[in-house]
Design a protein around this nucleic acid. Sequence first.
DNA 1: TATTGTTATACTCTATAACTATA
DNA 2: TATAGTTATAGAGTATAACAATA
Lengths: 170, 170
Amino acid sequence: MATPDASLDPTELDGYLALIEVSSLLRHTVEQQLRDAGDLSYVQFQLLARLGDSATGSHRMTDLADGVVYSRSGLTYQAQLLEQRGLVTRAPSREDERSITVTLTDAGREVLATVFPGHIGIVRSLLFDALSRDEVEALAGALTRVRAHMRSTPPRSAAPRRRKAAGSGS
Amino acid sequence: MATPDASLDPTELDGYLALIEVSSLLRHTVEQQLRDAGDLSYVQFQLLARLGDSATGSHRMTDLADGVVYSRSGLTYQAQLLEQRGLVTRAPSREDERSITVTLTDAGREVLATVFPGHIGIVRSLLFDALSRDEVEALAGALTRVRAHMRSTPPRSAAPRRRKAAGSGS
DNA sequence: TATTGTTATACTCTATAACTATA
DNA sequence: TATAGTTATAGAGTATAACAATA
């Protein structure tokens, strides 16, 4: 068998398959927990968490979209759901009237706080309890590298808000 | 306790966040490639690949469901789509008339072959090109450990009456 | 009665395109 | 014209429960 670019050695293949299964199972388990504990989808949780991480508790819609890799309409949809539940507010920005500033409410922080311990508990028990300290560091190190690589790699279609240069006459 | 179970140290947190983003992006990119190259969803690809890995090219529905973590109805849905496209056949098993044996067709193998190089190419360029050999091994090692741990951990709620012991390989 | 699988159905989520409004 | 966001809409995917058939 040849080993051209389009192949993986056994270690790589195993790593890839393990990554898929691990992330899949972790995601699945976490989603259930989030649903049970706070009636949140994973995306909704990510949005709230992102707002919670911000010093102001706010972000523009566009900034929220970046990193969650979603279509704008998808973000609008999720933001509406969160707003309806009173977990965030949406208000036009004064600096740029085109922008909408999304802000975490107290209720939003509460839900986040309610959900967080269980979330972390799952990540710990499912992901990290199996690993030694060295392995944790190796894993984090490798994945951080990969993440940086991915971020710097032209995603060929996940461009933030680039219109597709679809040839002639749009 | 200063560091209770329900918390993660910075390295762990970073590792977790990196895992989420990496797997998410990888999945997203691969899904597009599979869609473009073979009009397959990731789940459909997984099912075909699983059949392709089998010596006989066949599996029972139940065996296919295991490891893809889906509901049975979800599997039926996907299997129907694949059958309609002629990529698999479904036939009752003679050993156990309750079981359905799903078998990869030549057309299925063809699609798999068409799609595979691009798939692998993405995994390589996105995931492994950023890592040294040592990192690849460390990543694979850690994730393999985690996977084994997860497989041996009671899914806490995804087990109606599923008492299937014996963790299998791969 | 337990297991294998299907069907019916409802729902969530995502993506595309057309649209409004501001820069 | 380009950017920020929404709306309309359509489709894929998933889960649950009821169901039939075999062990």
